[in-house]
Amino acid sequence: MHQKVDSSLIKRKVTKNRLFYFIFILATLISLSFLVILIYRILSQGIGYLNIDFLRNFPAPYIDKAGIFAGLMGSIFMIAITAPVSIILGVSTALYLEEYAKDNKFTRFIQVNVQNLAGVPSIVFGLLGLTFFVYIMGFGYTLISGALTMSLLVLPVIVVASQEAIRSVPQELREASIGMGATRWQTIWRIVLPTSIPGIITGSILALSRAIGETAPLIIVGAAAAIYTIPDSFLSRYTVMPIQIYSWTARPQEEWQYVAAAGIIVLLIILLCMNAIAVWIRNKFQKRY
């Protein structure tokens, strides 16, 4: 039996479909246009101030002498400490949760809390760092305080990303290894880690690029606004790029805004490079099974 097709109903459905199509396109265009405006504004203001001296100079009271060298080196040194600390702790935690921990209430409790920590505002980590590293451990307002605070900040993100990567290793591979008399650790070292390392590295780089752009917690743990040396020990005073940029934007003369824009360009280039490396690793080690 054929049902009579109500063509007006179909027309309405098709129109509705088109409507949603345009809504989604519009949404995409709106977010994209803000990105374009941002990049245009930053480039048009900052590109004139961006030169090799800007990268080499310390912050100076004169606009043509000002540079981001201290911030750049500070950010690099900070990541050089934050990366190993957070990756070693994060991957170990993920391995424990995925490979060793029994599936019980306690494990699930840790699991949920790690995920919650990933959503805690960064300023809260700043307060934690201030209390623990600056005062209790007595590191003061130094590079190591800032770097360890940042490690705490990115740690939950690295744990969650590593867990995902470890979980995606097929169970059959673990069984094959265990079935030949390998211990759990041998299986982790020879099978699980090599297979999941691209995912772990990608997640870690993305987490660390968040740390590079982060300002709030470092203001609390005392990164300096203007500093004329680069750190020479863990206990040196330091600054990082976002703080340097922030201090420039706070100055009254308009030209400092352009200097800040130049700083933002440097920061963005570094972030883009880190993300590009993450994408490159992901594509290079694309799953083979």
Binding site: P170, E172, E175, A176, I178, G179, M180, G181, Q186, R288
Partner: peptide
């Protein structure tokens, strides 16, 4: 030790994502 004496072949072929050579020497190596 038991598992070195009592080996296992699984339902779904599950070679490691490694070379043929590395697959075979996996057991002896561990």
């Amino acid at each position: 030790e038991l598992r070195t004496h009592v080996g296992m072949v699984f339902q779904k072929p599950n070679p490691f994502p490694k070379s043929i050579y590395e697959n075979v020497v996996y057991g002896p190596k561990i």
